[in-house]
Design a protein around this nucleic acid. Sequence first.
DNA 1: TGACTCTGCGCG
DNA 2: AAAGCGCGCAGAGTCA
Length: 601
Amino acid sequence: MNRYLILDLETTGLDWWREKIVGIGIRLEPEGREEFFPYPDPGWLREYLLEYRDRIWIGHNIKFDLLFIHYPPEVVYSLQIRDTMDMVHLYDSRLSKSLVEVEKEFLGSETKFWHLHQENKRKIKSWDLDKVKEYCLNDVLITWNVFRKLEPELEKLEVLHIFRKNMELLKVLYEIEYFGFLFDKEEADRSVKILEENLKLQEEQFFQKAGVRFNWRSHKQLSYYAYDYLNFPRPENPFLDPVTGEDLGRNPESRKYNSTMVSSSILVGKAKHPWALDIQFLRETDKAIDFIQRLSSLTDDKNFLHSSFNISGTRTGRISSSRPNLQNIMSGMRGFFLSSSFMDAEAVEAILNRSQAYNVRRLFIARPGYKIVSIDYKQMEMRMFGIVSKDPHMLEFLQSGTDIHSQIAQRVWGKADEITRDWAKQIGFGLIYGMTMGSLRFRLNLTLEEAKKITSDYWNTFPTIRPWLFGVVEECKKRGYLRYWSGRIWREDRVEKMYRGANALIQGGCADLLSVAVLRVNNYIKRNNLDIRIVNLVHDEIVFEMREEDFEHIPKIANLMQVEDLFGIPFIVDVKIGRSHGELESYGKSDTGTGKQIFSQ
DNA sequence: TGACTCTGCGCG
DNA sequence: AAAGCGCGCAGAGTCA
C-alpha cells in the first residue's frame, strides 16, 4: 500500500527566490494525520520533510512548493512526486487549474471559495494564524481528494504513462528554474538608456510630422487623431455582421479587428495610413523597453532569472513560461527598415548605430567560462505533419532531411524557385493552422482561380493529406476527443472548432516529442555527471550552458534529440553556439547530399 | 485603489 | 475580397 505526503504552502508572493513561506500544511496518508507549521525555519523544514522522503509527495503545482522549500535538484530527483494540477490538465486541458475551480469540478464542493470569500488572499500575512492553518489544511485535503478521484480516471483514459513522464519532466524543469538563466543587467541598463533616447527621438519626429502631441499608446486617442483629426477615412470594420450590424471583431475568439482600427496590420495594410510605419516603430521601441525592464525587475541578487515553466498551461500540451516569459524574447529590430522613411538621415543613422539594443536575447548570457549552446529542430511541425498524416510522399521528403518546402515545390509544380517555395511554405502553414482560402490568397497575392489551382495541385500531389484533415474532424465528432501519438488526449465538443484538432495533433505532438528529448538528454547529462545545464526551452529548441571542453558531447546530445527510434525518421536538429542567446553562430555542418547531420555520427 | 476587460504584440 | 494555431504581458480604459 502506498504512503503519501500531501503538502501545500502559503507564501508572501510568487517568487520563491525572494518571498517567504507563511505556513506549510501537510497531511499523511493513509494515517490521515494533519500538521501545520507557521513561518517554519527553512533549514528545519527541509530536514523535517525528508523524514518522509520514501513517501509519494502530492501537491497542486508541487514544483512551486518544492522551489519555496529550496531543495537542491538532486534531492528532488530522488523523490516520487505527483502534481494534481497536471492530472487535471491531462484529464481535460480545457479546465481551469485553480484549486477553487478544481474542487468544484471534481469534488462538487466550494469550501475553498468560501474561505476566500471571507478573507483577502493577498493579505494572508495579516490573517489570524488559526485562519491560515484552517485554510491551508483545507487546500491539502482538497488536493488529496482530487488526487484520489483523478488517479483512477487517468488510468481509465490510459494516460497514466504520460503523467509519469510528466512528473519526471517536472524535476528537470525544477532544476532549470532553480539555477536560472544569467542576465546581463549592466548591459540591460545601457540598452534601456539607448532605447529611451531612441524613443524620444522617434516621438519628436512623429509629433512634428503629425502636428499634434498626444498619447499614441492610447488606442482611443490614436484612433481619434489618426482618423477624425486627420480627416483620414476610417477603414470599414469587415467583421460587422451585414444583417445584424453586430461587431463580430469584438468576439474574443477573433480579436484581430476592432472599432479603433489602430492595430499595426490595419494601419499598414488596410488603411495604408501615413502614420502606420511611425506607429509601428514607436511600438517596437516601446516593446523592447518593456521587455528589458520586466526582465530586470525579476532578477535575483546574483542577476539570475528564474522563469516558471508550466506543463499544464496550454491547451495543446506545450510548455508555457512566465515571470518572465522566456519564450517570446525579442531577437532584433523588425519594422525599422520599413519605417525609417519618415526620419531624416541623421536620425536613421543614430538609431541604426544603436540597433543592438533591440536584440534582447543577447542579454541572456553564459556564466564566465561557459558558452550558450542552442539546439533547435528544423521545420519540426512539418515533420510531425508528415508523420501524423502518413502521407507517403511527404514522408519520403522527410527522410532525406533537405529543405522540405523546396522539395514540395519541386514535386508539386516541377520547379523550386523562390515563388514556388513560398507557395509550398504558405500552404504548409495554412494546413497546420487551418487557414482559409481567402487568407491563403492574401498571403500569396493571387487571384481566386490561381489559389484554387495551386492548392488542388498540392492536394493531388499529397493524396492522404486532405482525407486526413477530414478524418481528424470526423474522429473528434465521433469520440469528443483526439489522441496524440504519445497517447495524450485533446478534447473538443464544439463541432465548428474541431478543425483545430489537426493543429493540436501537430503542435502538441511536437511538444510531447520535445519533452521526451529533454528527458533523454537530461539522463545522459546526469548519467555521465556532466557540467551541462539546460537554461531554456522554447517549443522546438533546447538552450544549454556548457564549457568548451564539453563540446565533444554535442553530437551525442544532438543525436538524442533527433529521437530517430520513435518514428523511424530523425527530427533533424541545428546547433548554434555563442556567448549569449542573441549572438549565436552555426556549429557543425549538415551534409545536404544525404541529409544526415554529422551529429548522427 | 484594485479588479477586470480590451487591445496589441513579442515568440514558436 | 484578409485574419488560421499556441502562449504571457503591458498600458489604457472602465467600473465599483
